[in-house]
Design a protein around this nucleic acid. Structure first.
Lengths: 142, 142
DNA sequence: TTGCGTGCAAAGGTTTTGCATGGCA
DNA sequence: TGCCATGCAAAACCTTTGCACGCAA
């Protein structure tokens, strides 16, 4: 079913490459556009939006918004499925996305499902907070 | 400090009333605007945005985005502060917001902080998924 | 009376749509 | 060659800003 997801064009390749290069952080459409232009592979924003929509449907990218920004953020999501099995932590200070691979926490998902009847969608859920590095920096000045 | 948060106008009253009536779900600016117009208390969107900004600063409303919609969602947040002490679950089907008051889950926050060095911000964090009622409905048709 | 609150109009952004052209298979 | 992909321009939205007037205190 997913073997023929459209033509292989250089625009699609360029967008996908950039997303994969930045799989540890999130990017906006304008950042994708700027990067591709600087790199020499000019791609219209329309095309970028259309590809992201498709990738979203296929579950290959994650989409969310960051406080204070009006534009959506996108992030490549490994097709091996690894990212749909653990929580994601987003630091409100530095913006980094951390992958929380932890047995203890995974069990909590089971607990919430069994005891509270709520099936968490790990693909969409992001835990916001402050990472240890940023907490240290703040501790210095406060 | 928070005893004099501006004048008491009928617009402010109308917006706050609507938010409090809908504290179990989220509303968009256009929904607020439509409701107030239908109710007879026409309020300009500019005013709605400005009040929401203030309420956000005061921590009286929560703001987030829902997949598929480009506009922001707002939700009244009880000033008793209880809501900053537990997780919120948002059902992706019915849109309801559930308050997860559970000792076991609260302990997990401590675990993530102590073992992973990440301090979760419960005010901003929303766990997405499907609630038990919607899961049942889907089970019937699938 | 003073100064914040309000709402219109306009600006600024982001995202979507229509349509003619380009390029993969 | 047949379609899908692309990109420009324009439209459609959402949100913010400037400014004059209204209204609470």
């Amino acid at each position: 079913m997913s073997s023929s997801n459209g033509y292989k064009t250089k625009q699609r390749r360029a967008i996908l490459d950039f997303l994969m290069e930045n799989k540890e952080s999130h990017v906006t459409v304008s950042r994708i556009s700027d990067h591709l232009r600087d790199e020499g592979t000019q791609v219209g924003v329309t095309t970028i939006y259309r590809h992201l929509d498709k990738l979203l449907e296929q579950g290959l990218v994650r989409k969310y918004t960051v406080d204070g920004s009006t534009s959506a953020c996108f992030q490549y999501c490994d097709p091996t499925g690894a990212c749909s099995e653990h929580f994601h932590l987003k630091c409100e200070r530095c913006g980094r996305l951390l992958h929380l691979r932890c047995e203890h926490v995974s069990q909590m998902c089971g607990h919430i499902y069994e005891e509270h009847g709520f099936k968490i969608n790990l693909c969409r859920t992001v835990l916001y907070g402050v990472c240890s590095e940023c907490a240290e920096k703040e501790g210095e000045t406060e």
